[in-house]
Write a protein that binds this DNA or RNA. Structure first.
Lengths: 202, 202
DNA sequence: TGCGTTTTAAATCAAACGTTATAAAATCCA
DNA sequence: TGGATTTTATAACGTTTGATTTAAAACGCA
């Protein structure tokens, strides 16, 4: 045995997330990172490897604590409500995001994934999971009649995924409540149950 | 008078666009940039100022030659058709984007706009213009009956803007035809003319 | 207590960064 | 033809980059 760590790996990883999330990968130097984590550069390299490895771990941490957590909280709720609450939370977060950090997964999708095969797989994998969450909600809703089936469930799930990404990008430069809520309003209309057949009005 | 330029400013700017578009702002060094433009670093500084100024000009060039041009080509066509053609072209571009460069405006919205007031204004301004294009299309369509008015025109325009950004982000890590086309399919359904009142079927 | 091991702090590495002198080359106008 | 002026190419500026070395400090276990 030997000298023990002075820091908690999970805690400093959370600080690393904060730094990468706000500034991105390239604009964050090892010194920025070490300072944000409250460590020396030597400790960072000793504990995590290199800069890319810290980002990799930070992204996993972010996904686990934002997306996985959120899906877990909403999955059991009624389908329409789950989707509505999901978007409501995203919009609320976007509007209160004074540092304009956006979503670290979206940021990663644009900055690191296109030039790094592993990050591409990771990001794509998470997006597939998000799509899967929406798909399950819609399938449940279509089965119990709370969501209309004018559109294929697979397509609706893709539309929701697209709208989610659209909100997160748009909020980064135009974090306006009416804009973001207006964006999703027609999409919720798309989910409404089929209109009951009705007679021609007088 | 004095020695004339050996290069065409527009031409080297187009090469700068290519470089920044593919690698982003931070990951592109002045040397990368100068090499891509076929110039020495001294010439770059002499002609444009600093790195940020080159990016600024490159972004203007990109907006002018991709978005402004596209809107101009579609604005006069029938509204539904214009919107359809717009998305068709975006999806086709996304699927043939082997270098995964995505959209330089979206890239700028995430990398440079959040930490630079001027870029934020520029990007937001272009997004407002895109929204305006969609809004005009929808208003025309709702006026002539080719687009339904179950949803407010302003909301539909926002939804289209969101879908556009969603497609561009999603395509960056998952450039799959069925995914992108499926994403927009329900949104086009949202634009369909109001169903004529009909009798209850037998 | 002292050996083995690991973490820490500080200094350091070569390379790359954005930017700028410097001076030769190339043009216009007198 | 001859300054005046601007672009070029080369080279360098000081700083910062990602990463490592060094040696002291801090523990577990014998």
């Amino acid at each position: 045995m030997a000298r023990p760590r002075e820091f908690d790996e999970e805690k400093v990883l959370e600080l690393a997330v904060e730094q990468f999330w706000e500034r991105g990968y390239e604009a964050t130097s090892i010194r920025d990172l070490a300072q944000a984590m409250g460590l020396t550069t030597a400790s960072v390299y000793n504990a995590f490897g290199d800069k890319r490895a810290v980002y990799r771990r930070a992204l996993d941490f972010y996904v686990e604590h934002s997306f996985v957590d959120r899906v877990g909280r909403f999955e059991s709720r009624p389908s329409r409500e789950a989707i509505g609450a999901f978007f409501g939370e995203i919009i609320a977060r976007s509007l209160s995001d004074t540092k304009r950090k956006g979503c670290m997964l979206v940021n990663s999708a644009l900055e690191v994934a296109p030039h790094d095969e592993e990050f591409q797989r990771v990001v794509a994998g998470v997006l597939v999971q998000v799509e899967g969450f929406f798909l399950r909600c819609i399938q449940r809703g279509q089965a119990d009649g709370s969501i209309g089936n004018r559109q294929a469930a697979a397509d609706l799930a893709r539309t929701l995924l697209g709208a989610l990404l659209g909100v997160r990008v748009l909020a980064r430069t135009r974090p306006e409540k009416e804009l973001l809520e207006g964006l999703v309003r027609p999409i919720f209309a798309l989910l409404e149950p089929d209109a009951p057949k009705q007679l021609e009005p007088a």
